[in-house]
Design a binder for these strands. Structure first.
Lengths: 262, 262
DNA sequence: ATTGTTGTTCCACATATTGAAACTAGGTTT
DNA sequence: AAACCTAGTTTCAATATGTGGAACAACAAT
């Protein structure tokens, strides 16, 4: 049969519904979900009920609105603690962001996209779920490129082919060939640059965090704006960046850490 | 037959496995999960596979360890934004915590327990998943008691009966009767006090956040230590606390918010 | 080599899921 | 107020999915 259908059984379907609701980004009506769902009414209905029962979705009977459930927040707390580099890397992020006096991001790969698991901004010391948990594109962010560059070829090719290459700015790389070339350059330089590829005026330098077996654990970046530094000047952060990435990697090793596999 | 089995179908089982893994709090072996699982080997195996496929679990093939998946963190980000009071309440928490110069917590109910969705500490402005997402007992925390007190009787009774009443300190309330009495007192006073019931030397004053229909949306507390204030002195925060709770409630109303239903 | 332990696959069987269609509850039009 | 929508919920036979005992592989330890 070969080809990979993307749903494993009922659980897969249920989770895809979860995603749908998440995607709306606000509480939604049954019919709204039904509208862009492949499931028939009754099926969708039961899936929603199950998820609601399970606390993965919340339901407001007065307004008839489904929203993501609070249970997710609790699970994520656990996930963040045990499956992300964030709790280990935390002191190192503090240190780095203070030293360079710029924003630092810590990301991991999730299905070819970047999931930011932590962030430090030395000026605005406010961070929360609103920062961590954010997902960004893999092909036009510093951490994304740094991580993708260091995957082994088969996985890298697979994920590259899945990128959607939306042109965010005039500098965004918009096809796989250029992107593969960029990744090769990154491997040579050992760091990735974001040259206003995702947002105008935002530039960054990023490095992968690799396990001792050279598997990609995550990515680390120093982000700034063109108003503060030129792209060339970013290079001066390279030693600090690599040093911190390496330290995180060592800490991760010693306190057994799971490797991201997608 | 009748009685409510707590699992709805395969999805329920899969999610219970997720919880199990979360509960370990660290990456685990297949056999460890099997050990305290009611599922037979093959079944558990397939559930784990499905969850892993779906990115809800991560799997490290080298070490053969399952851990919570990063996908959860992304979902939670969305959940936090759309289903929690946190994003709306944020500026008000800032304001309150600065004004009283103490730590403030914002919580919501999740299956009779308290889920902290945000926190502000005016001294240590470091907060993250490591604070938000934390789950605490309902019967011995300020926000927990404040929220439980204001539920309508049937739901309240149900949740009270589900509390586990572990004696954390000598002040912890350890049976439903005393607890129901306490809840009555709270309704009279309009605020709940935590009298070192959860942790020694930690005290707090808390109020519920109610919708216009008097449904419980969440809870807000000001936490301090016996070293800084006596229990009696906490009362002076009551006006500020109630005012802020009310403001949050109003904001929540205007930007449609789902009500917690368990 | 031999045994033990842990993880993976098989397959007949049972159960949970499916979805068209019927139904109900509210709201809107005639 | 009756007739008519529309959005949401329930039913039920057909069947796709999930189940779990047992056999099997992979690998360690003896």
């Amino acid at each position: 049969m070969a080809a990979a259908k993307n749903s494993d059984g009922t659980v897969g379907k249920a989770l895809s519904v979860l995603d749908k609701v998440a995607l709306f980004g606000r509480p939604v009506r049954f019919s709204e979900i039904l509208a862009d769902s492949e499931f028939p009414k009754a099926t969708l209905y039961r899936l929603l009920q199950t998820l609601t029962n399970q606390g993965m979705l919340g339901y407001d009977p007065d307004r008839q609105l489904y929203s993501l459930g609070v249970r997710l927040v609790g699970l994520a707390h656990a996930a963040w603690n045990q499956a992300s580099l964030a709790p280990i890397a935390r002191p190192l992020l503090d240190e780095l962001s203070l030293k360079v006096d710029e924003t630092v991001h810590l990301g991991q790969l999730d299905h070819g996209q970047v999931l930011y698991v932590d962030k430090r901004n030395p000026k605005l010391p406010l961070n929360m779920f609103s920062d961590a948990g954010k997902i960004g594109p893999g092909y036009c962010t510093g951490v994304g490129k740094a991580m993708l560059a260091y995957l082994d070829k088969p996985l890298r090719d697979k994920l590259v082919s899945q990128q959607s290459f939306h042109r965010y700015t005039e500098h965004t790389i918009t096809n796989s060939d250029d992107f593969q070339a960029e990744l090769a350059t990154i491997r040579e330089q050992r760091v990735a640059y974001d040259r206003e590829e995702h947002e105008p005026n935002i530039i960054c330098i990023a490095a992968p965090i690799l396990s001792s077996k050279q598997r990609v654990l995550g990515g680390l970046s120093i982000t700034t704006s063109t108003g503060r530094y030129t792209l060339e000047e970013l290079e001066k952060f390279k030693p600090e960046l690599l040093a911190t990435a390496h330290k995180i990697s060592q800490l991760a090793q010693s306190w057994h850490f799971p490797e991201t596999n997608s």
